[in-house]
Amino acid sequence: MIDQSRSRLSHHDVWRRWKEDGDSDAKKQLIEHYLPLVDYVSSRMAVGLPKNVSKDDLVSNGSMGLIDAIEKFDYQRGLQFETYASWRIRGSIIDGLRQGDWVPRSVRDKAKKMEDAYAVLEQRHLRSATDEEICDYLNISNKDFQQMLQEVAVATICSLEEPIREEESETRLSLLVDEKALNPEFKVHETYLKDSLAQGIEKLTAKERTVVSLFYYEDLSLSEIAEVMSLSPSRISQLHSKAILRLRAALTKQKDQLLQK
């Protein structure tokens, strides 16, 4: 494993030996050095997933993502590898879960119905839809609504963590501006998307905004957020699900508007 005490120059040299000389030992060193990142990301993503999803499977898929990140990363651009690799690891885990059909079609259908309900009602009232309004729209009881939130939690846990572009670390959540991007059409689209997401976040309830901030920006797990907010983990999961459904509805609306232009 790469010694943590090595200078940045030494670490840069390991990348050079791998990228420019094709040194397999250097690649092995990089993999061993960043393996703890796989365990960290896997542990965070395991929160809220069904019990039948094996942590070992998450780590296995995540490791493939790490290797892919090491193979594709351009160390000369001066970017933070940990950030780039985290999204590649998450993406690899998500791909593995999808291939394993980890979310039943019935749950996906429920998530889509709820997302559509938020989109329609919030467009109609120009404000955040209440739980009661969602229940009326879907013609279900509040108890059934709460149950649906619990069921779709696993379908919303990763929805904003997917990269916008294949070889970049930007996600729908971060929407970081790539100063080296030369495509004006993409930049316009990204600006609209960022504005839409910002407007969607403003429409969230105070608790939903807090959950989104702590989970995606402060990097806390759902269980840690539950302790911070003095709420049960299930309640935090529900707040997260509602927030993501609202944001997905906002982004879908923005996408439809762009396609019409």
Rank of each mutant, 00 (worst) to 15 (best):
R108L: 15
L49C: 04
D74R: 08
Q254I: 07
F186V: 10
S141K: 04
L37Y: 00
E20H: 15
A249R: 05
T83K: 13
L58K: 05
Q150V: 11
G91A: 11
E168L: 11
V120Y: 08
D109P: 03
L49W: 04
A250S: 15
I89E: 06
L66Q: 06
Q4L: 10
Y40P: 00
K28G: 11
F215C: 10
R44A: 02
V41T: 11
D178W: 02
L30V: 14
M229S: 02
S7A: 11
K27M: 09
K194F: 06
V38C: 01
S86E: 14
D56G: 07
P184I: 10
D219T: 12
S141L: 04
F186S: 06
R209D: 04
I236A: 03
G22K: 02
S241L: 02
D136W: 04
K51G: 00
K261F: 08
I225G: 04
S241I: 03
I201S: 04
M1C: 10
L214Y: 13
I94L: 09
K203V: 05
M45Q: 10
G62T: 05
E166M: 12
S106W: 10
E179K: 07
G96I: 02
K28D: 11
L245S: 03
Y75D: 07
V154R: 13
D74I: 06
R172N: 07
L251R: 11
A243D: 03
N52R: 13
T191F: 13
A226Q: 01
L173K: 01
E115K: 12
L138Q: 08
D56Y: 09
E185K: 10
Q146L: 12
G62W: 05
K203A: 08
D74H: 09
L9H: 06
Y118T: 06
Q199I: 13
S86M: 04
Q4S: 07
Q199N: 15
A198C: 05
Q146I: 09
S221R: 05
Y217T: 15
K51I: 14
L37G: 05
D25M: 12
E161I: 02
L160C: 03
N142Q: 10
K194G: 11
L35M: 15
E167R: 10
K51M: 10
